[in-house]
Simulated assay, not measured.
Amino acid sequence: MSCATKKQTIKTENNTSEKTTKETSKADLTAITEVPESKNETLVDTEVDLIPLPPKPPKQLSNFKEVIHNRWNTILQKHVSESGNVDYKAIKNESEFDVYIDYLSETVPDDTWTKDEKLAYWINAYNALTVDLILRHYPVKSIKDIKDPWDQRLWQFGDTWQNLNDIEHKILRKMDEPRIHFAIVCASISCPKLQNEAFTASNLETQLTTATKEFLNDSTKNELTEDHIKLSKIFKWFKKDFEQDGDLINLLNQYADVNISSSAKKSFKDYNWNLND
């Protein structure tokens, strides 16, 4: 007999069968190996099918704080190139994009979320809302063609109407992680590229490191040699963030492909605000 149809012989007697049935039902017949003999029992060949355990409930998604970004991840993989070019027209036709924005607004982080979970959430939110802002005015050549682009309160998160400035300056920057400046994107050519995957808490350290290295070593964004650095104006605008743990050169040398001298001359590149499409 196969394991799936395995049966066992139970020793019983007519006048004790009812009692045995009750006892075995309590003991869960799935694991019957022996029925104790009493002095009144005689051997009777009785076959009983092993009762299978009830099926396990479907495995619940263990971390909804990451699962909520699945739609965004799919959209990014479909419509953002490896170099960060965004197909806004295609995203505009994605009904799932609107669903994601709505879901974000209904799933605001609270004090039970870890720092990395909050960071991943708000980085994704900033980038998605920036795309949404562009789509509300598309076609457009630059985010700067939109009136007060970073101050428009277009999205309700819980009881608060958010704008991009508040998410960046009142939420993300207060979390003391300067690499967020290479993860959030202002829809412009000189910005860090929009990554074509969603940020998640479990991969955040790797993702922030990758985004920082890619931006810093992209010669269209920064020009680095041992004795001279021509940097993105991001390093000028957010100087305080990059020097909170020491000298800027020390920070750059953690991610740059070249070793920059502490006495290197510094200047800044012009910023290209044209759309990153």
Rank of each mutant, 00 (worst) to 15 (best):
M1H: 15
C3E: 15
A4F: 13
T16L: 10
E18K: 01
T20M: 09
E23D: 12
L29S: 12
A31W: 07
I32K: 06
T33I: 14
T33P: 02
K39N: 13
N40Q: 14
E41S: 11
T42Y: 11
T42P: 05
E47S: 14
V48A: 07
V48T: 13
V48F: 14
L50F: 15
L50C: 07
L50E: 05
P55T: 04
K59C: 00
L61H: 12
K65R: 15
E66G: 08
H69V: 10
W72F: 13
L76Y: 07
K78I: 00
H79L: 02
S81E: 08
S81W: 11
A90I: 10
E94L: 05
F97R: 00
D98M: 04
V99D: 13
L104K: 03
E106I: 02
T107H: 15
P109C: 01
D111Q: 13
E117V: 05
E117L: 12
E117K: 06
A120C: 09
W122H: 09
A128F: 11
Y138M: 00
D145I: 00
W150H: 02
D151L: 14
W155L: 03
F157I: 01
F157D: 01
G158Q: 08
D159M: 07
L164S: 02
I167A: 01
H169W: 11
K170A: 12
M175D: 09
D176T: 04
P178L: 00
I180W: 12
H181C: 04
I184M: 03
C186S: 03
L194G: 01
S202P: 10
N203Q: 15
T206V: 13
F215S: 04
S219Y: 15
E223L: 09
E226W: 01
K230T: 11
L231S: 02
D245Y: 02
G246L: 05
D247L: 08
I249H: 02
Y255I: 04
A256T: 05
D257R: 09
V258P: 03
F268E: 06
Y271Q: 03
D277G: 11
D277C: 04
